[in-house]
Amino acid sequence: MAKSTDKLSPADIITNTIIDKLEAGVRPWVKPWRPGLGGRPLRATGDPYRGINCFWLWLCAEGAGFNSRTWMTYKQAQALGAQVREGERSQIAIFYKSYSKTVEPVVTGDTTDEMRRVLRSYAVFNCDQIDGLSADFYPSRMSMVPPADQLPERAQHFVDALPIKVQQRGDRAFYDRIADSITMPPVELFSTRAFFASTLAHEAGHATGHPDRLNRSFGKKFGDDAYAFEELVALSGQSAPSPTLQ
């Protein structure tokens, strides 16, 4: 349900994005990986965002696969000697405050205090969209995989031989039928490489339904019979026990 954001208010943009996520299907599974961002989004000063900005900027970072927690304006990046890369798209951050103002009605002349509210948005970029910042703005992901953990030879061969594009980014595992590609969280976010391979096998099960392969119906909506059957098909191809049901 893509909508133009040209004339939408900040509240409308955030609300519509949340609705789109819900319509895509909220799945009650436990992910075998941990988010890589960690903590609240940060301003250029290092101070954490509060309120709806926490949820909103986390949602934006998750969708884009950003690793950095820090967001800043174009001017803040330039002040730090850095440059937003050409073509990068900004996100909105919300500024909100309430204050009391003393007013004097012309008719009565009696002064009263009225509560006023200010709500506006401004454009920010994630540090992963900016070149030239200091290394502190580009944190490395902490690997959750034990150093000695390795896949069995057959499982590694399966991962290496998949005839489909696999990209590691973000915090979601899914198969994109239009692009015919699989997106996975980085292997470092999984507790074991076996969980990574298991989740990848599940998404590869979905990929078998592509029109150039088995041409299977994927189901039009989360929760319908075809969608449930598709999940069973993908689950049957999972090569190791895993709680994910993407």
Rank of each mutant, 00 (worst) to 15 (best):
D6N: 09
L200D: 05
K101S: 13
V30S: 11
V145D: 01
A204W: 12
V233Q: 13
L133A: 01
A228L: 15
E231Q: 14
G63T: 10
V26C: 12
E114G: 11
V84P: 02
P152R: 04
P146C: 03
T199C: 07
V187S: 13
G170R: 05
Q91Y: 07
N16E: 15
V118W: 11
Y227I: 12
D12N: 00
E153D: 02
R177E: 11
A77C: 05
P211M: 08
S68I: 06
S90Y: 12
T73C: 09
F55A: 13
L42P: 02
P35W: 02
K221V: 14
K7E: 09
A2M: 11
V145Q: 04
Q83W: 08
V84L: 03
F190V: 08
V166T: 00
I19H: 06
A173W: 11
E86S: 13
R169S: 12
M142Q: 14
D131L: 06
V166S: 01
Q168N: 04
F218G: 07
R172L: 13
A204V: 07
F195E: 14
N53E: 02
V30Y: 11
M115W: 09
P28A: 12
F222V: 10
L151C: 03
R193A: 10
F196A: 00
A93Y: 03
R172D: 10
P241H: 01
F190K: 00
V166R: 00
P241Q: 04
T15S: 11
K97H: 08
G132P: 01
K97I: 01
A148C: 01
G205L: 06
S121F: 09
P243I: 06
Q78C: 15
R89G: 02
I19M: 03
A228R: 14
T17F: 14
R193Q: 12
Q78T: 09
Q246L: 10
S98Q: 06
G38H: 10
H210D: 03
M1Q: 05
D224A: 14
G39A: 09
G51A: 10
K165C: 05
Y122S: 02
P241D: 03
D171G: 06
Y175H: 08
H206M: 06
D110I: 14
L133C: 04
F137R: 05
G51C: 09
E88F: 00
S4Q: 10
R172Q: 14
M144V: 08
A77R: 08
R85I: 07
P186T: 14
G51D: 08
Q76C: 06
G25T: 07
L151M: 05
A226N: 13
P48C: 11
F196K: 02
Q91G: 04
R120P: 00
Q78G: 07
N16D: 08
G36W: 09
F125K: 00
G223H: 13
W71A: 05
V159P: 00
D113T: 14
L214H: 15
G237S: 09
L37T: 11
P147H: 07
D212Q: 12
S100L: 08
E230N: 12
W29I: 08
R117Y: 12
R34K: 15
A61R: 00
Q167S: 10
N67C: 11
R169V: 08
I182W: 05
D149L: 03
T45L: 13
A207T: 01
E62W: 05
